[in-house]
Design a protein around this nucleic acid. Structure first.
Length: 834
RNA sequence: GGGCGUAUAGCUCAGUUGGUUAGAGCGCAGCCUUCACACGGCUGAGGUCACAGGUUCGAGUCCUGUUACGCCCACCA
C-alpha cells in the first residue's frame, strides 16, 4: 500500500473520524457464524442510567475494552454487547423531579396522559403504568448521552446487541426465569420477618445493607431481679423472652422460669441459646420481635411467639393490652417513631424505677439500607424469596472462577460464609420488572395470597396491574371472587443476575446461546461482588448447574485528586469525561485508565491525561518520521547488528506484553510497551536516522536494513499500543496499511524472529550508552546537539568494543563525531568537543 | 472479632523465582529554537525501600512481630 503520511499530524478530530469509520465498516460487529471455541464473549455490566457518567465509569469500561481489543487481535471473535440498566430507585427519583409526578398505584392507567412542559409545584399523581412510561422516556434521553460518551471513548462493543433492562424482551426473560424457579420450588412466597426501610417503605435483601457507626446508648433495665442491657428500650413491649448462654452458671438455674417485663408486666420465659454472649452487657439479653437479625434467629430456633409493635412507617403500631397499666404506658408510645418512643419510654422506666443508673452513651454499628436515612427495622411481611443453593456448592463455584486479581475471590467466599436466610427479591416499588402473578380474591373480598395465579409462559412479559390472568375478565379485578395483581416489583438484581443468559439469547436465540454461553469474561467492580456476581452465579447454578462465565476481571474505584471517594453525581467539571476527551483526546483518557493495576483504586490525575496526550503525539510524530525514509525494497533484509539488537529487544517486549495481557494485566502490558517505545525514540531512531536517510557513509544494504527494521518495529509497536491508544494507532495504521489495526493480528515473537531479530541487545545498549555520554558532554558544555565532536575515544572490554564497533558508523553520525577511536582498555569514554 | 490489600524519591507508581551501585514518569533545576516532534528534546539533583527482629554468603524481595492507611465479612444485646 502506498504511504500517505500527513505533513503535520494532529490528534484533534480522530475520535469523530474513526468513530464513524468503525461504525460504517462494522469493525467491531460480532460475526455469529463463528463457533464457541473461536469466540470470546463478555458479560458487560450495564451501567445504571441515573444521571451522568463520570470519569470513574470511563476507567472501568476502558479496562474491559483493553482486554477485549487484545482478545480480538489474538484472533478471537469478540462478543461484546452493551446494555443499560434502567431499573431501580434512582430513575424513579429523577422521574419524580423531572416531570413533577408521583406514583399512585391505585390509579387506573390513563393512555392520554402527557407530562406537563414544566414540572408543577404540587406533584401530579399518576398510575403505575403511566409512571413507568415516564421513567422509560427519561431513560431514553439519558441513554443517548451515555452512548455518545461510550462511542467517543472508543469502546469496541457491538451496538447491534444493545439491550435495556426495562425493555420487554429483558422483562420477559426475567419473568420467565422467575416462573421457572417457582415451578421448581426454588422461589416461593412466604410471610416472614423482613428487612424493611421505613422511609422508602420497601423490603430489602441482605446484600442491600451496610453498617454505619452511630451514636447509641446502653440502658440497663430491670426484669424483676434480672438486669439486662439494651440499646433499644423502646422494644421492651415487643419482648418475648430473655436469653443467656446455656453454659452460663449465673443463669443456669433460671432457665425454664419466667420474669415479668417492666411497665407492661408481660410474663416472658428465660431461655438458653449459644449465640448469647456471656461477655456482652449483663450476660443476658432480651429477645424482641424484632430488634435485629439475631432476634430473628433466636425467635426461629426457640420457637417463640410474635409480639409485633413496629409499623411499616417506622412508628409504633397501636396495640391492645390486657391490663390498664400496660395500656396507659403503651399509649404514650404508640404512633411515635422509634427514636421518639425511646425517649419517652426511658422517662417512663425512670419513673417506675426499672431503669438502673443512667444510659451510657456508646457508638455502635447499625444496619442501614445503603440508600437509606434511618436504621432498618425488621417487620413481618409477605414476600417472594429465592432459596440459595447449598453453601458447599456455592463455595465450589466461587473457587472455580478465575478472579483477576486473584485475591478478590475471598470476598465472594466471605459473603457466602455470612449468608443468612433466603434472598428476598420483592421490592415495594414501581419501576422494575413486575411479578407475573395474580392472586384470587375470595367471595368476601379477602385476597388469597397463598393462591397465586402464574402467567402463561408464552404470554410473557406481563404486567399484572394491566394484564388479566387467563380465565378472568378485567371487570373482575379487585372484585370479590375475582383477582388482584401482584403489587410489587423485583429486586433489580433479580433481573440483572440473568444478564449472561439474556445477552446470550437464552430461550430466545438458541443458535446464539450455543455460540457464546457460558461466557468468557465478567468485568465488574468489587463493590458488587456480593450482589451482581454472586446472584449471577446462583441463577446459572439453578438453570444449568454451571458457572455463567470463566473469568472475572475486577476493577477498582476512581477517587478524586484529593483522595475522597468519587460520588456518583459529583466530580470536578474539569474532570468531566467529555471535557477531558475534548482537551486531551480519548486516547489520553484510555492511557490514564490503562495505568490502573487490575483491582486497584485509581486517582483522577490531570497530569496523566497530559502524559497520555504527549504519548499520542509522540506516536504520531515518531511514526511519521519512521515512515518518511522511503519504503524498503521488497528483498531488503535486516543485516546490521544494531538493527538485529533492536528487534531482539522488541521480541522481549512482545513476550512480556503478551504474558501480561494473558493474565488480564493490561497496565503492565501498557508499561512495557511504553518503556520500549521511548527507548526506541530516544536511542534507536537517533542512532539510525542517518543510515535510514541513505547518507553517503552507508551502503545500500545497510540503509535497506534500517528501513526494514523501522517498518517492522513500527508495525509491532503500533499493534502493542492498539488496545490502549485505540485512535492514534488506527490513524497511523491507515497511513500505510490496509484495514483496521484493531482487526490485525497481535504481534508474536515468531513474527519478529522471522523478520531477522538477533539474539542479544549488546550493540544497541552499548551504542546508546556512548551516545548518552556524548549528549551529557554537550549539555554540560551548554551547546547544541548538532555541535561536532572533534574526537571521541571509547575504551572498554573486548566484548563491548566488538559490540560498539558494530554500530561505529551510526554512532559517528548520530554524535556528529569527526574522529572516533574504539579500543580495548579500562572502561572510559572521552569526548572532545570541537 | 475474622480476613484481604497497601506501605519504595516531594507526588503517582514499577521492581517477575532473593544476586553488582534501587528504577520510571511527573514535579524541580539547568541546557538545547535539533532539519519527526516546543502540544518538544537533552542532562541533572533527589531514596535509612514504614518499624523491630530473624533466615541467608547476600533481603526492597523470604519468615515472625509491630504500626499506619484503605477495603471486605461478622450473631453489633
Amino acid at each position: 500500500m502506498k504511504r500517505t503520511v500527513p505533513e503535520k499530524p494532529v490528534l484533534e478530530g480522530l475520535e469523530a473520524k474513526w468513530g464513524e469509520r468503525w461504525e460504517a465498516d462494522g469493525t467491531y460487529r460480532f460475526d455469529r457464524t463463528k463457533t464457541r471455541d473461536e469466540i470470546y464473549s463478555v458479560d458487560t455490566p450495564p451501567p445504571t442510567v441515573s444521571g451522568h457518567l463520570h470519569i470513574g465509569h470511563c476507567s472501568s469500561y476502558t479496562h474491559t475494552d483493553l482486554i477485549v481489543r487484545y482478545q480480538r487481535m489474538r484472533g478471537r471473535e469478540v462478543f461484546y454487547p452493551m446494555g443499560w440498566d434502567d431499573n431501580g430507585l434512582n430513575i424513579e427519583r429523577r422521574t419524580q423531579i423531572n416531570y413533577g409526578v408521583i406514583c399512585d398505584p391505585s390509579l387506573p392507567y390513563d393512555p392520554a396522559f402527557r407530562a406537563p412542559e414544566k414540572p408543577p409545584k404540587d406533584p401530579i399523581a399518576v398510575s403505575r403504568p403511566n409512571f413507568v412510561e415516564l421513567c422509560s422516556q427519561l431513560t431514553l434521553e439519558l441513554e443517548e448521552e451515555y452512548r455518545t460518551l461510550w462511542t467517543a471513548l472508543g469502546l469496541s462493543c457491538d451496538w447491534t446487541y444493545l439491550y435495556r433492562t426495562i425493555a420487554p424482551d429483558v422483562t420477559q426473560i426475567s419473568q420467565l426465569a422467575f416462573l421457572r424457579l417457582v415451578e421448581r420450588g426454588q422461589a416461593f412466597r412466604v410471610e416472614a420477618p423482613t428487612l424493611w426501610d421505613v422511609d422508602f417503605q420497601t423490603s430489602l435483601a441482605q446484600a442491600d445493607l451496610e453498617d454505619r457507626e452511630m451514636p447509641g446508648a446502653y440502658h440497663r433495665i430491670r426484669f424483676g431481679d434480672i438486669e439486662i442491657d439494651t440499646t433499644r428500650p423502646e422494644l421492651i413491649p415487643a419482648c418475648v423472652a430473655l436469653v443467656a448462654h446455656p453454659e452460663d452458671e449465673r443463669f443456669k438455674p433460671r432457665f425454664g422460669t419466667t420474669v415479668r417485663s417492666p411497665l407492661f408486666g408481660v410474663e416472658v420465659p428465660i431461655v438458653a441459646h449459644e449465640l448469647a454472649d456471656p461477655e456482652k452487657g449483663t450476660g443476658i439479653a432480651m429477645i424482641c420481635t424484632f430488634g435485629d437479625q439475631t432476634d430473628v434467629i433466636w425467635w426461629r430456633d426457640l420457637d417463640l411467639p410474635v409480639r409485633s409493635i413496629m409499623g411499616r412507617d417506622g412508628r409504633l403500631l397501636p396495640v391492645e393490652w390486657d391490663h390498664a397499666e400496660a395500656q396507659r404506658c403503651y399509649d404514650e408510645l404508640a404512633g411515635r417513631s422509634a427514636k421518639q418512643a425511646q425517649k419517652r419510654i426511658v422517662e417512663l422506666l425512670r419513673e417506675s424505677g426499672d431503669l438502673v443508673g443512667e444510659p451510657r452513651e456508646i457508638t455502635h454499628a447499625v444496619k442501614f439500607w445503603e440508600n437509606g436515612k434511618r436504621p432498618l427495622e425488621i417487620v413481618t411481611t409477605r414476600q417472594w424469596f429465592i432459596k440459595f443453593p447449598p453453601k458447599d456448592v456455592l463455595f465450589e463455584r466461587a473457587r472455580a472462577l478465575n478472579f483477576h486479581p486473584e485475591f478478590m475471590q475471598v470476598r465472594m467466599e466471605n459473603w457466602i460464609e455470612g449468608l443468612a436466610g433466603d434472598w428476598n427479591i420483592t421490592r415495594q416499588r414501581f419501576f422494575g420488572v413486575p411479578f407475573p402473578v395474580w392472586y384470587r380474591m375470595g367471595p368476601d373480598g379477602e385476597v388469597l395470597w397463598d393462591e397465586p395465579i402464574a402467567a402463561a409462559l408464552d404470554a410473557l412479559p406481563v404486567d399484572p396491574s394491566t394484564d388479566t390472568p387467563a380465565g378472568f375478565t378485567e371487570a373482575q379485578r379487585n372484585q370479590p371472587g375475582g383477582f388482584v395483581g401482584d403489587p410489587d416489583v423485583m429486586d433489580t438484581w433479580a433481573t440483572s443476575s440473568m444478564s449472561p443468559e439474556y445477552v446470550s439469547g437464552w430461550q430466545r436465540d438458541p443458535d446464539l446461546f450455543e455460540r457464546v454461553f457460558p461466557m468468557d469474561l465478567r468485568p465488574q467492580a468489587h463493590d458488587i461482588i456480593r450482589t451482581w456476581l454472586f446472584y449471577t452465579v446462583v441463577r446459572a447454578e439453578f438453570e444449568f448447574g454451571t458457572l455463567p462465565f470463566k473469568e472475572v476481571a475486577i476493577s477498582g474505584f476512581v477517587q478524586d485528586p484529593d483522595r475522597k471517594k468519587m460520588s456518583k453525581s459529583a466530580g470536578n467539571a474539569e474532570d468531566d469525561p467529555f471535557e477531558v476527551i475534548a482537551k486531551n483526546g480519548a486516547d489520553s483518557l484510555r492511557y490514564w485508565a490503562a495505568g490502573a493495576r487490575p483491582g486497584r483504586d485509581l486517582f483522577v490525575d490531570r497530569n496523566q491525561f497530559k502524559i497520555g496526550r504527549r504519548l499520542a503525539m509522540k506516536i504520531l510524530n515518531a511514526s511519521r518520521f519512521a515512515l518518511s525514509f522511503g519504503e524498503p525494497d521488497a528483498d531488503a533484509t535486516v543485516t546490521e547488528a544494531i538493527d538485529q539488537a533492536l528487534l531482539a529487544s522488541l521480541r522481549t517486549t512482545v513476550a512480556e506484553a503478551t504474558t501480561a495481557f494473558e493474565s488480564y494485566d493490561y497496565s503492565r502490558a501498557r508499561d512495557v510497551t511504553e518503556a520500549f517505545f521511548w527507548g526506541f525514540c530516544d536511542n534507536y531512531l537517533e542512532l539510525v536516522k542517518g543510515r535510514a536517510y541513505g547518507n553517503d557513509a552507508h551502503s545500500a544494504a545497510a540503509t535497506a536494513s534500517a528501513r526494514r527494521t523501522l517498518e517492522v518495529a513500527l508495525s509491532v509497536q503500533l499493534r502493542l499500543f492498539a488496545p490502549s491508544m485505540a485512535y492514534v494507532t488506527e490513524e497511523v495504521w491507515s497511513w500505510w496499511q490496509e484495514g483496521s489495526i484493531h482487526r490485525s493480528s497481535w504481534p508474536t515473537t515468531d513474527e519478529i524472529d522471522a523478520s531477522g531479530a538477533g539474539d542479544d541487545v549488546a550493540t544497541l545498549d552499548a551504542a546508546s550508552e556512548v551516545l548518552a555520554v556524548v549528549r551529557r558532554t554537550k549539555t554540560e558544555a551548554k551547546v547544541g546537539m548538532r555541535t561536532p565532536v572533534a574526537r571521541l575515544e571509547v575504551r572498554d572490554t573486548a566484548e563491548r568494543v566488538a559490540a560498539i564497533r558494530m554500530a561505529e558508523a551510526d554512532l559517528r553520525e548520530a554524535g556528529v563525531v569527526t574522529d572516533l577511536e574504539i579500543a580495548e582498555g579500562d572502561p572510559n569514554i572521552t569526548v572532545t568537543l570541537a
